[in-house]
């Protein structure tokens, strides 16, 4: 497997690197879920890497692996140049200060019994960052202010806040230990539309002010495009395409990306009517028994017989843009033509 990053990226500007990562879960009766099955990516300092995919693509599991929150079956996870794949429980503790996580549903990810101040102070207490209670309280106030909440809200409980406010608390907690990398796992998915924009703006502002690095995991293609400097598209435990948002969204090189993009509805009735949708047939296959060869071939409108035999590597489409398809851009072109015929 080749890494998704361009070769010139040096060790210092890579905050986290995952190489040929595999995470397999046993699910009884000898079956194994291949949640992540050979993923390589790196996250560079100060950037937002968008990880986009549908359910079962393994995007969240990849994020969890960066904090060693799932058992890594094979491959390596490096954070700040150190291989953390086999670190002991004790060693993992400082790792979880370097890499912090924001979860999807803020009402589930905050302990209902604790005040939000106590939740935010947890990383401080765990890592012994601010010795006294008073110092910690002061820091909690700073963090609340940073995420746009009043410092006196520290004494509230999660149920006394709105969803958007709770997610701000989740972000404040993640920032408490001054992490190098924030893994944002569907941070806006469970929020109301008008609140999603607030949270995206907040994340952007924090990144500018604090120079943060994000791994932005989402199924929302528009949000990923808006937030990311680079995007990786996942399908069934693999990265199928990676590049800048411009490259991926304007000129997708993998049939799956093209189909995914064509399936996203836009708030424009005229455009929706003349949309040439590439409809995929069937469902995502089970990760217990992924298809041989190219994983997308069972749903790919442009699949050919040898797609079942050869497992395609990522090839370079252009500088910084890679895709894993045997037939390169030809497949996408063919699909588009097919969609045109269907509508025309």
């Amino acid at each position: 497997m080749t890494t998704t990053g361009s070769t010139e990226s040096t060790a210092t500007d890579v905050v986290a690197r995952v190489t040929d990562l595999r995470v397999h879960f046993p699910v009884g009766r000898g079956s194994v879920v291949h949640a992540v099955d050979g993923v390589s990516l790196d996250v560079r300092r100060g950037e937002t890497l968008g990880l986009v995919g549908e359910s079962g693509s393994g995007k969240s599991t990849t994020g969890l692996a960066l904090l060693r929150l799932v058992h890594v079956t094979s491959g390596t996870v490096e954070v700040a140049g150190q291989d953390v794949t086999t670190w002991s429980r004790r060693q993992v503790k400082p790792l979880r200060r370097r890499v912090a996580m924001v979860f999807q549903d803020p009402s589930a990810s905050l302990d209902p019994r604790l005040t939000i101040g106590a939740s935010i102070a947890e990383p401080l207490a765990v890592h012994g960052l601010r010795g006294s209670k008073a110092e910690r309280r002061e820091r909690v106030g700073e963090l609340l202010d940073l995420v746009g909440l009043r410092p006196d809200m520290a004494d509230r409980h999660p149920h006394e806040m709105s969803g958007g406010q709770r997610q701000r608390v989740g972000i404040a907690r993640a920032l408490a230990g001054e992490p190098d990398l924030l893994v944002l796992d569907e941070p806006i998915a469970s929020l109301d539309l008008s609140v999603q924009a607030q949270i995206m703006n907040l994340l952007r502002r924090l990144q500018e002010e604090l120079g943060l690095t994000y791994l932005f995991i989402s199924h929302d293609l528009a949000a990923v495009e808006h937030m990311s400097d680079r995007v990786a598209v996942m399908y069934l435990g693999r990265i199928v395409e990676t590049g800048t948002p411009e490259q991926i969204y304007r000129n997708p090189a993998h049939p799956y990306t093209a189909a995914l993009l064509s399936a996203v509805p836009t708030a424009d009735p005229a455009r929706e009517r003349e949309r040439r949708r590439i409809t995929l047939h069937g469902d995502i296959p089970s990760p217990v028994d992924p298809p041989s060869g190219c994983r997308f071939r069972t749903r790919c409108p442009a699949a050919r017989p040898d797609c079942a035999e050869k497992d395609p590597d990522l090839y370079q489409v252009e500088e910084g843009h890679r895709a894993a398809c045997l037939y390169k851009v030809e497949a996408v072109r063919e699909m588009r033509a097919g969609a045109d015929r269907a509508t025309g």
Partner: peptide
Amino acid sequence: EQVFVTAAVSTGAS
């Protein structure tokens, strides 16, 4: 199994 427990694990808590 609650997410807030995973969240606590993710902060490095013992």
